[in-house]
Design a protein around this nucleic acid. Structure first.
Lengths: 357, 357
DNA sequence: CTGAAAGCGCTTACAG
DNA sequence: CTGAAAGCGCTTACAG
């Protein structure tokens, strides 16, 4: 039987691989002799169409390679099924783990994730979040804190939920799933204090446009500086690279001889510190106790397994994604989710040598 | 002046933060007293609108928070400005670097990137690539080889370019930007052979559904098995984790005493091997020479800097993205791009001890 | 330079 | 269960 119609070039046979105009519901309607409504319903509400006809449509769709135009659907349904994800960088295990978690549940639920990495600069985060909203994202996940009022009201006015991960911040402008940043850092610092350390150095990322690191610093202070005997002698904002860890410990060795412990905001920094000490023949933890943060794979598998805080990265991503899906599909309101970190004590922390004097 | 019209509720004042229907060109036309055509042109072709009117429109747009509906634009213009990226995993430095490169140029050029991670299974890659095409991706970048004829003709019939990264494969079904996989591995193996090694072990990822690793294996064979004196005694397909590297070297120590060199397809595996040897007090490179692949950050910064092949990950991503943009914007055909790897010899390879006997 | 109008491809309320 | 028709919001060829 000849299904082609002289008026319609879309369903003409073409050479394999030759571009042709994609066929539409209308074409499929002509081919099957049914109405566009029935064809459309075959995909959007199959149980509402008689099995016989449904089969016809499906068969023709298969044969002619029909698939509904997503832009038209998006316009009509007001649903893009796109969700934006903002990350400081992909090139750090923690965030990679987070996005893996996010992507898994979102793909499963039939969404697509669009990503942007923004560095540690909240202004860029705001800009990209806006761009995502303008380009049709139905929801946004942001790794790291965010406190822009304008963005908040813009998003609210468009009913686009945004959820932050990493920090648990029940008082914040946006919903959050994460842990208590300050508390986690405080716990690490307390561990160091209890070990007898009195002079601490702290290594973290930029605080200026990223309150994440500011929170960590606050926590380190809170947990360590219990009295005037316990001081943070050195605070440095740097990048999360091994090389930076190495440089920083060099500076500490040179300029702050009283320091006996180094607390960092990232395992990568801590690994740099430990590595450099090894190379210099400086014993860890005997001379320096050092702590990481995040518990990346390497933390437990390096030559000197690292004392660090375990952050449930993938889980944060999954929870955030699940909340969003639940809101989008079922209208369930988005709340704050609090997860726990765990201080894991391994080999890089020990009693302060200065204490033995 | 009262800009609201009783017939149109969209431009009524609302409480800050209260959701309201987004305003459309039509609303802006009513507000300004111009036609929708003029309003639309203000955004799509500003130079075609008299400056005076343009100002009016822009001002009103600003005031009422107008932005063009992206779904409507996509439908009308047949452009989604979305580009799909398929990766085995985000959780490996090489791929993270690649996507960072991709995302940078694509965002710059005004595109959004949608991502999916697929593991090392080409069937899943094919499935996700299809899904991306169905959902409106204008182009696709796939990290790793791909050879599915059906996918190829599907994409061709819809004029969706796909470009693979990692391997340079001028004969392949899809355009590629990458390096000569076989050659790079061969170079490593040759280095080991020249060092006097005769019995090699090879560690790589799954070959079954991923020709990437098959190519590497082929290269190792080609570079090493020059005669019957030089054999690969052990080949294992495993995961890219430190733990797997450790397990594998344990197995080699136990079952293949003749092996004096271990070539891996990933720095992470190599680091596992080296680490395990350190723990066991086995000297590297004296007892085992070991090579990595990729030259991740840690390769040069670990205690024992790794002999490895440097892969230009970010550059591959950038080149691929640039090609695509150039095709999409200017219709410039997409070719194959060949990049070079570089064998970097550090501390984990040396003469075979067996040779000194 | 400006506007009225067609149309991108889809879904669904409505009537049958 | 099925179909004719309206409409999602935009852009642009066409006529003025």
């Amino acid at each position: 039987m000849d299904r082609t119609s002289p008026k319609n070039e879309r369903n003409k046979a073409t050479l394999v691989g030759e571009p042709r105009k994609p066929i539409r519901v209308k074409d499929l309607a002509e081919i099957t002799g049914l109405s566009v409504a029935t064809v459309s319903r075959t995909f959007s509400k199959p149980e509402a169409v008689r099995p016989k006809l449904r089969q016809m449509v499906l068969k023709a769709a298969e044969e002619f390679g029909y698939y509904p135009n997503p832009s038209a659907q998006a316009l009509r349904l007001r649903r893009t099924r796109m969700i934006g994800v903002l990350l400081p960088t992909l090139n750090y295990s923690l965030y990679a783990g987070m996005i893996d978690g996010i992507e898994g549940v979102l793909t499963e639920a039939g969404y697509f994730v669009i990503i942007n990495s923004t560095g540690f600069d909240e202004r860029k985060v705001v800009e990209r979040a806006r761009a995502m909203a303008d380009r049709g994202a139905e929801a946004i996940i942001c790794a790291g804190p965010l406190s822009d009022r304008d963005l908040s009201s813009l998003l609210k006015s468009r009913s686009i939920p945004l959820i932050t991960t990493y920090n648990y911040e029940p008082e914040a402008l946006f919903a959050s799933v994460g842990f208590d940043n300050v508390e986690a850092a405080s716990q690490v610092a307390k561990h160091l204090r209890l070990l007898g350390h009195r002079n601490l150095a702290v290594l973290l990322g930029p605080t200026e446009y990223h309150t994440l690191h500011a929170g960590l610093l606050e926590g380190f202070r809170k947990g360590f500086e219990s009295d005037s005997e316990h001081r943070i002698l050195y605070v440095s904002e740097t990048d999360y690279t091994i090389a930076c860890g190495e440089e920083e410990i060099d500076a500490i060795i040179r300029d702050y001889p009283a320091v006996t412990a180094v607390a960092t905001a990232s395992d990568v920094l801590a690994i740099g510190v430990v590595l450099r000490c090894s190379k210099l023949g400086i014993p860890v933890p005997e001379r320096y106790s050092v702590t990481g943060f995040d518990d990346i794979d390497l933390a437990s598998h390096s030559m000197k397994p690292l004392t660090t805080s375990r952050i449930p990265a993938a889980q944060m991503g999954e929870e955030a994604a699940r909340s969003l899906v639940d809101y989008l599909e079922n209208g369930r309101p988005i709340g704050h989710v609090r997860l726990e970190t765990r201080l894991v004590i391994r080999t890089t922390t020990g009693p302060a040598y200065a204490n033995c004097e």
